[in-house]
Simulated scan of single mutants.
Amino acid sequence: MKQIKFQKSTNKEFTTTLQDRVNEYFKGNGTKRYGGRTMVIKTIVMLSLFFIPIGFIGSGLIQSVWLLFALYILSGLGMAGIGMGVMHDAIHGSYSQNPKVNKYLGYTMNLIGANSRVWKVQHNVLHHTYTNIDQGDDDINAPLFLRFSPNAKRYWIHRFQHFYVWFFYGLSTISWITTKDFVRALRYRKMGLLKGDFKKVLLKISGWKVLYYSYALVLPLIMVPLPAWIILLAFLSMHFVTGLLISLIFQTAHILEETSFPKADEKGIIADAWATHQLATTSNYAPKSRIFSWLIGGLNFQVEHHLFPNISHVHYSKISKIVAKTAEEFKIPYLVNPSFLSALTDHAKMLRQLGRA
């Protein structure tokens, strides 16, 4: 990947003003940037939502096929909640002021079958730094049959992606728990983004996955008095629900008709400053839906998250007013969809557009 840089001289006053105002908000309210009690409650709720149904399944008391599927899908909702509302803050270092708390709660991603170290490179480094930049943002570096950027090569099959993409969104966490972490770990090592003894890295990734499969699938296969193919199908349904939910929440903030997909010049420089680049490539949705926001870890405020990833999502609804006002003053677009449905519709239109031009 070519080294990509942002203009430092562009919109410096906007960036400084915005940072000062957000800092003043926390100082004036005597509030810390971290999650506090709210995050502790959410963590207990989401971990319980995942582990309690899995525990019932592993107990061997479940004999009904429909109850088996219901419990696995319920765990899938908890899994999505852990990913969006617990692990996400922890890996960004915004869950707690204590780095060890962030580190250990970041391991909740490992407990649901993926790998926090690989995710940290993919998400914190590549996605947050190079948002919507082809070959830079790993969230839009899609497999051959999907096209998420107008700057990516288009193939004939992309004409139909707005029909079949939803199925592959559902497979995304199945990919995580099987091959994706290993493939990306190898690529990140070649890019110089994954340091340390690579054999130990692979062993740790493998060890966590063995632990996950042991209680989420192997134990149910041993204990549940139902055919193995039914248990496996129920397990896959859990991941399909999780993958679909997480993909829709993240993709509807970036792959839209209104968002930009900037290209670097021949020197690898993006015309915008980093902060204004985030505003151009990211959109909020459903800003007035408090319950929805709580459930998805504040990721309906993706603009604020991208500008201030070191601030816990519990504060995004408050600081969004500061960001919107400052952007308006400096005549910088602040993208927002009124509802999740409108964002989802916009995303589907963009997928169709990307398949045709």
Rank of each mutant, 00 (worst) to 15 (best):
R356Q: 04
L299H: 05
I332R: 01
H92Q: 03
H347R: 05
K190Y: 00
K288W: 13
Q251E: 10
D265Y: 00
N98M: 03
A90W: 09
V183A: 13
S59W: 04
Q7N: 15
L171R: 00
Y316A: 00
I174R: 04
I319E: 09
A114W: 05
T31Q: 13
W274V: 02
H305G: 08
Q278W: 07
F235R: 01
G76K: 09
L186K: 11
G243A: 09
R33Q: 11
W156D: 13
M1I: 13
K103M: 11
T131N: 04
L146C: 08
V165Y: 15
H254G: 03
P262E: 10
P220M: 14
H254N: 04
A273H: 14
F167G: 03
R189I: 08
S320W: 10
F198K: 01
D137Q: 01
I269E: 10
Q353E: 03
G58R: 12
S94T: 08
S59V: 10
L126F: 09
K200C: 02
M39L: 15
K103G: 07
K200Y: 00
T108F: 14
A324Q: 15
A357R: 06
Q7K: 13
L232V: 15
F148N: 10
F240Y: 08
L344I: 01
I269K: 12
A327L: 06
W208D: 09
F26Y: 02
A264E: 11
V65P: 03
V45I: 15
F235G: 05
S214C: 14
I62K: 00
K318Y: 04
N102D: 15
L202N: 04
T17D: 12
V183W: 13
N151W: 07
L61K: 15
D272E: 15
V323Q: 08
G297D: 01
L299Q: 05
D197M: 00
G170I: 09
V101T: 15
I112D: 11
E329I: 08
S175K: 07
A185C: 04
W274T: 00
P99W: 06
E257M: 09
K263T: 14
S237K: 03
K318H: 10
L245F: 02
P53G: 11
G35V: 11
L221R: 11
G60T: 04
W156M: 09
K8M: 14
T131F: 00
M191A: 05
M84Q: 07
R154H: 11
D138Y: 03
V125P: 00
F292E: 02
K325P: 00
F240H: 03
I269Y: 01
S9P: 01
D134A: 10
D20C: 08
G28V: 11
S283D: 12
H305V: 10
A216D: 09
R147W: 13
H306M: 06
E328V: 13
K2P: 12
P225T: 07
M46V: 14
F250E: 08
H306Q: 08
